[in-house]
Every structure is written in C-alpha cells, then in structure tokens.
Nucleic acid binder design. Structure first.
Lengths: 213, 213, 213, 213
DNA sequence: GATGAATGAGGCTTCATTCAT
DNA sequence: GATGAATGAAGCCTCATTCAT
C-alpha cells in the first residue's frame, strides 16, 4: 500500500504487465514462491527489474495478485456447481461427479496458475478455507435435498474432499494420468459409496447411522 | 557425505546434538524450511554457528535428517496397522478407524516434528509416496479379506485417504479441535460408508458396482 | 559465464568499473590475491559489495581480467621487439638491450598491475609460458640471423631470461634502484657475453662450442 | 611466542611431530600455504587438531619451521660450493657447473620440501636474499681468482642466477625433464659464455668491457 | 514507461584456534 | 600427549528493492 497511483492504461503498458504476470506464473510454477527470483521473472518477461516495480510493489504483491485471481475464478465456479434440488435420485452420482469435475477442470485448464493459488503456502490457506466453506454450503444444501447423509458434518466432509482433491490433482491430473472427467468419476464413486462393501451394510445395518460424527 | 564419520560420541555431544535437533524442529515448525535460519536454530539451541556445522553439513542436512526420522517412525507404524484377517465383520469399522487413529496419533504426539516430515515441500513428497504405497498395500490386503470393495483402486484410495488426513490433521488435530480417536472415527465413517444415504442404495442398487473405478 | 552480457555501457558505469579495477589493482598489489578481500576493494572504490558483483562474478573473475589484460599488453610488446635482420653487427648488443628494455618498461610503467599478471600464482603461469614461447621464437630468429649462438636451446634460454628478469624486476626495478634502460643494459651485458673472462676464451678456445647444450 | 615450553621428547611425541611435519610438507606442496588447511594436515597425519597446536603455535609456525629448515640446509650447501682458488683454468666450467648442480640437487632430492621454503611467498624472500648474498660472495671470490669477469656486479649476477634457476627448477627439474647434472651443464654454458657468438667478439673487441655494469 | 546502475540487509559457510577432559 | 567438542571472526555472495536518467 505504498504508491499504486497507476491510472494510465496504454496498450503497451497492458502488454508489459501481462508479460510480467505470465512470467511470474511460469516462475512460481517452476520454483515455488520461495525459490522464485524477481530477476528470473523479469528475464522471462524481457524487461528490467525497475519495470517490475512499476507494476507491482513487491514480490509478494504479484503473488497475491495471482492467488486472488485463482480465488475469484475458483469460487465463481464452485458457486454455480450446486446440485439442483430437482435432481432425480438416479442422477445424484452424476451431479456429484459433475461438481467435482468442474473444480478439477479449472486445474486441468490452468495447470500452472491454479496450483500457485491453491497449493502455495500460507496465502493459499485463506482461499482453501473459502472453497471449503462454499463446498460445505453445497453439501449442506444437498443434505437438505436428501442427496447426502444428514448426519455427516458438511465442513468436515468438505475438508476431506478438498484434501483428497488437492492430492489427486497433483498425482493424477497434473501428471496427465487422468483427465478431469475420469478423475471426478473415481472420486465420486469412492466418496459417494464409501469403501465398505455393500454386503457389510446388511450385517451392520443401521449401525453407521449411529456413529457420532 | 563430507564429515560426520566420527566414531566417538560423548554424552555431551549427544546433548548438544539433541538441542540442535529440537531447536531445528521448533524453527522449522514455526517458520517452515524456507524461512528458517541457521542463526535462529543455533540461538534456540544456545550454541554458535560453527557448532551447528560440527553436527550437520547444511541446513538441508538437518532437515533431511528430520524428514527421514519421520519417515522411519511413520512407516513403522503403518506397517503394523494392518487389519487382521480374522476380524469379524462387525469389527471392520473399528479396525479401519484404528488404522487411521494410529496414523493420527503420531501427529498428535509429535505436533511439531511430524508436519515437518510430512508437509514440508519436496523432500516430504517421497515420504508421502511411501506412506501411500504402504497404505495401498494394506487396502489391497483388506480387499482380499473382503473388508473393502474390490473394484476400488487401492493406490487411488490411498491417495484420497492421505490427502484428506493431511488436511484434517492441520485443521482439526493440530488445532486441538479433535483428538486422534474422534477424528479417526469421523474419517472412518465417511470413508467407510460414503456420503450417499443408504436409501439411495436401494434405488440405485447395483449401480455403484458398475462404475468403472 | 553468468551475467555481464549486458549490451549498453553508460559512461557512469565505465567509471565505476574503472574504479573497481583500479581498486583491485591496488588491493592485489598490496596484499596479493589470497589475502585480498572484496570488502577492501569496494571500500577503495567507494562502492558497495553488490556493485562489485554487478561488474564481476567473483574475486577470481576480476583477477583473471587483470591477468588477461597484462597478457595482452605484454605479448603485444614482445611480438614487436624482434631484432631486425638488417642490424649491423656492432648494434647487436644495443638491440638485445632494447628488446629487454621494452619488456622492463612495461613493468616500470605499470608497477602495480604488471606484477599481478606476471607473478601472482597459478593463473600467471600460463602467461609466462606464452611470453617464454614468444621470446624463444625471437631468439630462434636471432640465431638464424647469426646474433645468437646457434647451439643454445631457445626455449631454455627464454626461461633463463624470464626467470632472471622476474627477479630483477622485483629487486631492482620496482624498488627504483635501476630504471628500465640501465637494468636492460646490465642484463644484456651479462647474457650477451657471459661471465667467463675473455682471456679464458683463448685458453679454452672452441671448447664452449662443444658443450652439449 | 606464546607457550612452547615443551621439554619432554618421548619417542612417541617425536613420531607424532614428524608425522605432522611430513603431512604439512605434503599439504603445502599440494595446495601452497594459503590454500592449505590445518584440518587437512592433521587428517593426513592421523591426529586431531589440538594435537597440532600442541606442537606448533600456528599454521604460520609450522610453515616457518619448514622454511627455516630449507634455509639451513640450502645455505649449508652453498657455503661449501665455492670454486677452489687452485682450480686450473681448464676446469672453471666444470666447477661452475658443479656449484650450480649442488644447488639443483637439493631440489631434486627434496621436490616437495624445497619449493615450500624457496618459492612460497613472503617468508621465502628472506631465504632467497640470503642465498643471493652467499652466491654473490662466491662470485666475488671467483672474480678475485680470475674466473669471472671483474666488471660484473656479483649481487646482480647472483640475482640473475637465482631467478633463472628458480624458473628452471620448476620447468625442467621438478617436471623430471632434466636431472640436476644435465640442467647445471646447460646453465653453466649459457651463463659462462653468454649468448653472443664468438665471432662477434672479434668485431666488437674490447667493447663489452666498456659497458658500464 | 522503461532503463542501467546501485544499494541495504542478511544468510551461509569456513577456518584457525581453544576449552575441558 | 591426545581427544571430542566448541568458538570467534570473517568473508563471500544473493536478493529484493530503489535511484537517477
């Protein structure tokens, strides 16, 4: 919050700024925030160091900018991914999978940017909290609609989802092993039906509803 | 692989070394590896910088030592947490919960050390892979014993578990919100039975077995 | 081979760079390379340490730059110091003296710089070899012209010259005891006529040509 | 001049001390004084660092000890290498060669130790001065005996000799290219008769005696 | 808007040397 | 006589950041 009285937006300036942002994405993606260097960023962007400081106050600033960008885009997606109340029972799994897929697609389409905002340290913990809150609201809604076991804690579930997805994104999605659709399906299957075979349900019928959650 | 091939280790040395290790744990826990400083570590330990280099070659070295320590202790725990084949059906959930609880307990009892080895960046990715491999072996074993849906991919499941737990540890365990036992129970319930209400199982009977996993 | 591939060089930069070079010459001259400190160099130059690294990568780098500079200048001089083939016999000693004088003058005029390049350790051994090679070529040429005993090994002679001069420069020239001209004359006299009195030549006539050289 | 109240000389102590000295010779020979490390010396000697300080006060101390040792041995040799006054004219060159050979032999037989004392920086300049003084005394003596041109400056000549030999030792002797005897012969030939062909002496008769030296 | 040049601050590491046993 | 452990003192170098043009 020092200067930033930037008012002009010539096309040339926009271009330079964009080059810096792209360069920063590449740099952060390759080295992470802590091992990134402004000298590398400006080299990638083909400008000099003072130019960087013309557009951003600090190294943190451009990182925060990226994190914020991810936050906005990601929360926007989540908010629209609620399972419609009118969903017929037979489509629940599809809808669940779809909600997950929307989230994964963002990472698939922004393989460098998204991890910066979502994985990279302290700043991204805020965004994760926000995502968790949104997802938990969706879950609560789905519970109200009967698509989800009501005794489960939505926030808790949301953290589980997010934690898993965070890992799965790295291991399966960014590596190209699975695409968003396939991965979402696998996740939905596991989270939807659990791991315990159906046969056990009978022998332990009703029990799982009694577990305090 | 430079020095430290010394043979003798006086009690005094062990004490100093231990002080350095403890100090490093505190420092890494507080600042993370990247923002940690050797000067801080030695200050916490009450020794001078050269003394640090008497015991460890670099800052990386002591960090690796800690990561390795966590890896050893954690893999040791996992290896012994297999659900016994003789487990009666009615105890499956208890056993599952117990396996998770063992893992969580390690973090509960080593709230500073464990995260260093498990969360902190690149070096810990190896350890996570190893844990995942172990857990997936346990899962496969449980599938063989009929405690787990056979169509699920053990490695995939293992990543889901681990990802969730990683998050839950931070949010619920290290914050003191839940203890290892309670948290394990919640996780087991979700992972064991899934989120979809039992009522849906009837209407979508057999379907979830058809989902390719 | 890191940076310093910059293209532009403002006058200001040239000035700073020159100040650093001069400071380095003084520092190396006073303490030698091993006991020199970058902190001293920048203090002499009136700049900060990072400024040093803006112009040179390491302490070694600036030293190599100086050695290279001496090598260039010195080899340039040597290459033009060949005794002309048309020299009448009576002028041979003058020409020999002159060739030596040219070399000495460089040290006389660059009393701080020249020794850095010529005396200072390992890097300067290469330059000495080069000088020796050049001088030996001149000697061979002079042998062809009849100004030098043909049975002498030019490379060997060249090393003798150089070794002597290296010492004489330190002892007589840099101390101000002799100037280049006077010193060259003394050297030429000794190397030209040897130490054995002429009277012995008669009694041992022809013998010295039989010594295997 | 700190402690050094060492009185006892048990055989074990002598052995340890000798091991340290040998180790130091190796270390200095390999790296030179400035790049040598006490840690390396004691490692070579198979003892610990405090043990080093039990025998020598500082790193400089052991180096000085070695330089002094070389000085003693070398000056002892020089002092006995004077050409006897009764030498017949026909043997002058042999005697000159022999004097040189004695000096070279020391380096041949102590290829690691001798250079430490003779080449290594500031401390060795004193020893060189002493050698030069001794040699010049020998030369003056030889002038008195008529074996050397009387108009030449003995000290100057001595420096020339020494400078050349210093170089020749490194280039030809320590490399194994020539042995002490052969090298001495080459040097004697050059220094005894000079480089100018005998034929020039006639045409420039008497001239070289007029050169001020 | 952009540049070449410069700086402040601080971290890592090494090494000769000494303490306590 | 010798050892394991510890220290004081520096030096090199890097990086984010700013000055002057």
């Amino acid at each position: 919050m020092k200067k930033r009285a930037r008012t002009k937006h010539t096309p040339r300036a926009e271009k330079t700024r964009a080059r810096l942002v792209d360069a920063a994405i590449d740099e952060f993606a390759e080295f992470g925030f802590h091992n990134s260097k402004i000298s590398n960023i400006v080299a990638r962007a083909g400008v000099t160091q003072p130019t960087f400081y013309f557009y951003f106050d600090t190294k943190e600033a451009i990182h925060e900018y990226l994190v914020e960008r991810v936050r906005m885009e990601l929360t926007g997606l989540i908010e629209t991914a609620r399972i419609p109340a009118t969903t017929p029972a037979s489509d629940v799994m599809d809808k669940l999978r779809n909600a997950i897929e929307v989230f994964l697609k963002y990472f698939e389409e922004n393989p460098k940017l998204a991890p910066i905002g979502y994985f990279d340290g302290i700043k991204s913990s805020a965004i994760r909290e926000e995502i968790v809150a949104l997802v938990s609201r969706n879950i609560a809604f789905e519970q109200g609609a009967g698509y989800c076991r009501p005794e489960l804690d939505p926030v808790f579930m949301s953290h589980c989802y997010n934690g898993s997805l965070e890992r799965l994104i790295r291991v399966y999605l960014l590596s190209g092993q699975y695409d968003a659709h396939a991965l979402a399906e696998k996740v939905a299957n596991l989270y939807g039906y659990g791991s315990v075979p159906k046969s056990f349900f009978d022998s332990t019928a009703g029990e799982h509803n009694n577990l305090k959650s």
